[in-house]
């Protein structure tokens, strides 16, 4: 684990150093790059936490011991997600990250990230989570159109997202309008 971590750090330092002249060339008045540009998955990991902060669950008033984030299928984040949630709380609870392939286990979580590996049987996975008040997030194409709630997509190489309000409402989840207005596309009721 340590070695893995170290090699990752090494890569990032090299990347940062190689980007330094570029940073100066494009932004001569900017500060020297103190942090390297985050990867898409670092951004997505941060977004997951942010989504959690702006959603209200129907069982807010009956909290379990932890807030569970299930990563269904292959894990694209690696330790990035652990770091993103490290020391943070949602609904006043410590965040527990469960990597699983079991849809049943995912249905017990508050939030589920459904990876690219589940593309083949997405309808089954989503159907299994129906009525369980689980915020579903995915980064495969047309995730929201396919019955997911929050779908990541890239626009001009920046991470953006789409929302399916119908699914959110059916799961009795309330999403803050502050998030809704940032969505690239919103699938309304009956759309």
């Amino acid at each position: 684990m340590l070695a893995f971590n170290g090699s990752k750090m090494y890569i990032r330092i090299v990347a940062a150093l190689s980007l330094l002249p570029l940073a100066f060339a494009f932004a001569p008045t900017a500060l020297p790059a103190t942090a390297p540009l985050p990867t898409d998955y670092e951004v997505k990991a941060a977004f997951l936490y942010n989504f959690a902060k702006f959603v209200r669950w129907p069982d807010d008033d009956a909290p379990g011991p932890t807030f569970v984030l299930a990563i269904v299928g292959d894990d694209p984040f690696g330790e990035v997600i652990d770091r993103a949630f490290h020391g943070k709380t949602v609904l006043g609870r410590r965040v527990e990250i469960r990597r699983t392939r079991s849809v049943r286990e995912a249905a017990a979580a508050q939030m589920a990230f459904i990876g690219e590996s589940e593309r083949g049987h997405l309808p089954q996975v989503l159907a299994a989570l129906k009525g369980a008040s689980v915020l579903t997030v995915g980064d495969m194409d047309r995730f929201a159109d396919g019955g997911g709630m929050v779908g990541f997509r890239l626009k001009d190489s920046t991470v953006r997202f789409e929302l399916n309000l119908r699914e959110l409402r059916q799961a009795r989840l309330q999403m803050s309008s502050q998030i809704i207005r940032l969505a690239q596309r919103v699938i309304e009721d009956g759309a």
Partner: peptide
């Protein structure tokens, strides 16, 4: 501006 900052928008 909270969410635009959070979502880098």
């Amino acid at each position: 501006t909270v969410t635009p900052l959070l979502f880098n928008d």
